[in-house]
Computed example of a mutant assay.
Amino acid sequence: MQLKNSYKPNYFFFAQRFMHLLQQHIKQHPEETQLNLRLEDIYRHFGDDFAATTTSLEGILNIADEYRIETLDGDQKIIQSYHINASENTLSLQVIEDVTLASNASLKWLEPDPNSYE
C-alpha cells in the first residue's frame, strides 16, 4: 500500500484566516489605511504554521488580495497593495478607506471563489 502525502498548503484557508486577522486589526484601529503587521502575529494567527508565514505567504496574500467589499462605487478590493519586509519581519498593507466604513456597518466581505481561481 502506498500513501501519497500532500504538502500543498491550503491557501484559501489561510487567506480566510488572514482576512479575519485584518478585520480584527481594522476594528481596533479604524483610522488606519496603512497597516503594518508583525509576521510573528500572523504566525500565531496561523496556528504556528511556519510554512504559511514564510514560503507560502506570497500565495496566501495573492488570494487575500482578491477579497472585496460592496461600496456605492461597486465592488472594490480591500487590499490595495502589500509589501513583505523580511529583514524587519513585517507586512505592510494599504487598504481602501471604505473598508473601515464597511467594517463599522458590518458589511460582508466578498471572498474569491476557490473553484474559479487559477
Rank of each mutant, 00 (worst) to 15 (best):
Q2I: 03
Q2Y: 06
K4L: 10
S6K: 09
Y7I: 00
P9R: 05
F13V: 01
F13H: 03
F14E: 07
F14S: 08
A15P: 05
Q16V: 00
Q16I: 00
R17K: 15
R17Y: 07
L22C: 01
Q24I: 07
Q24W: 05
I26D: 00
E32G: 03
E32C: 11
T33H: 12
N36Q: 15
N36S: 15
L37S: 10
R38D: 15
R38M: 12
E40I: 11
D49I: 04
T53N: 12
S56R: 13
S56H: 09
L61R: 03
N62R: 14
I63Y: 05
A64G: 02
E66L: 13
Y67V: 03
Y67A: 04
Y67R: 12
Y67M: 03
R68H: 15
R68E: 14
I69L: 04
T71A: 12
D75W: 00
I79V: 09
I79C: 10
S81Y: 03
H83I: 00
A86D: 11
T90M: 10
Q94A: 14
Q94F: 04
E97R: 06
E97Q: 04
D98G: 10
T100S: 15
N104K: 14
A105N: 10
S106V: 10
K108E: 12
P114T: 01
N115A: 02
